[in-house]
């Protein structure tokens, strides 16, 4: 009985004592890469709440449900696709994601999942195609990987008077045979961050084709400018972190109730002037913008 009274007394005394709360944010980082570190610097600059970070690639297996149950965070931040996939069964806690390709490209997520999407909004690409004077835009996509994004893009393209010539690709090796179909049908190529379509071999074939057909290729990363792409819309990991941090702070303050997927606000236009000159194209207007 003495032990019982002691336990009760201890529980009540301890619970009434002031104590620092545990971490507000459980940060699940897919791996140790400079881009993730940069985004996290941005996140911490905008969201001053305490956080506990777990780098998933340090571990062979991470039972995220167990960690969430033990840590009881108010918010989870999943950085990268691996972290987002590992957290997919968490329902009770709001989950924000950044630098995750799958966030708005292929499938819908539960209501507690949101964040800043990796893919630039289709409207920004369409502005770029407009500036390049291209009305018929060719795009290859795997319905399972970028189908959701393409559906949105097709809808916006129709409304703005563009013709989106979209060709589904289910296996990487199918792209080269499908390229021929685009001959004379399109004024520009749009390369989506689709891992079925974008392989080293396919990138080379697509850019060679664009050069031989004198049509510009627009990509999601400046990495391919040196290979012959005409322009790219790049995201800024630090600003994406800041943007996510602002959403997180708003959720933690109780100002925001719904978790939503929003597009990245800071987009950088990268261009390959020599390719543009060769194609006798000029990008008009101010395209780097904050949403």
């Amino acid at each position: 009985m003495r032990a019982l009274l002691l336990s009760l007394l201890l529980a009540l005394t301890l619970s009434s004592m002031p104590a620092a709360w545990g971490a507000d944010v459980l940060i699940l980082q897919s791996s140790r890469t400079p881009a993730y570190d940069e985004a996290l610097r941005g996140f911490r600059a905008a969201c001053k709440s305490s956080g506990h970070t777990l780098v998933l690639s340090d571990y062979a297996e991470v039972d995220v449900l167990r960690i969430v149950k033990e840590e009881r965070p108010r918010l989870i931040l999943a950085v990268g696709d691996k972290a987002l996939a590992a957290s997919r069964k968490v329902r009770e806690v709001p989950l924000l994601s950044m630098l995750s390709l799958s966030l708005n490209l292929s499938k819908r997520f539960p209501d507690n999942v949101g964040g800043v999407a990796m893919a630039v909004a289709p409207g920004e690409y369409l502005k770029l195609f407009d500036a390049l004077g291209a009305k018929r835009v060719g795009v290859f996509y795997d319905p399972n990987k970028t189908g959701l994004y393409l559906k949105r893009a097709a809808h916006e393209a129709r409304e703005l008077g563009f013709v989106l010539v979209a060709e589904p690709v289910l296996e990487a090796r199918d792209l080269q045979s499908k390229l021929e179909k685009m001959k004379g049908e399109v004024d520009a190529f749009w390369m989506l961050p689709d891992s079925t379509v974008v392989t080293m071999v396919n990138v080379e074939a697509l850019l060679l084709f664009s050069m031989s057909q004198n049509i510009p290729a627009v990509t999601f990363t400046g990495q391919y400018l040196k290979n012959g792409a005409a322009a790219a819309l790049e995201i800024d990991p630090f600003d994406m972190g800041v943007q996510t941090g602002e959403v997180a702070a708003s959720l933690l303050r109780g100002e925001a109730r719904r978790v939503q997927v929003i597009p990245p606000r800071k987009i950088r236009l990268e261009r390959n002037e020599s390719v543009l000159r060769k194609l006798r194209l000029k990008i008009n207007g101010q395209l780097t913008m904050d949403n």
């Binding site: 140790r32 890469t33 571990y59 990268g80 974008v198 392989t199």
Partner: peptide, 19 residues
């Protein structure tokens, strides 16, 4: 995959086993 590499999201050194 190539998309992850081109976006700078793959680890700098390939990891064959988690520590």
């Amino acid at each position: 995959d190539e998309v992850t590499r081109s976006l700078g999201l793959s680890e700098e050194q390939s990891v064959t086993s988690s520590r």
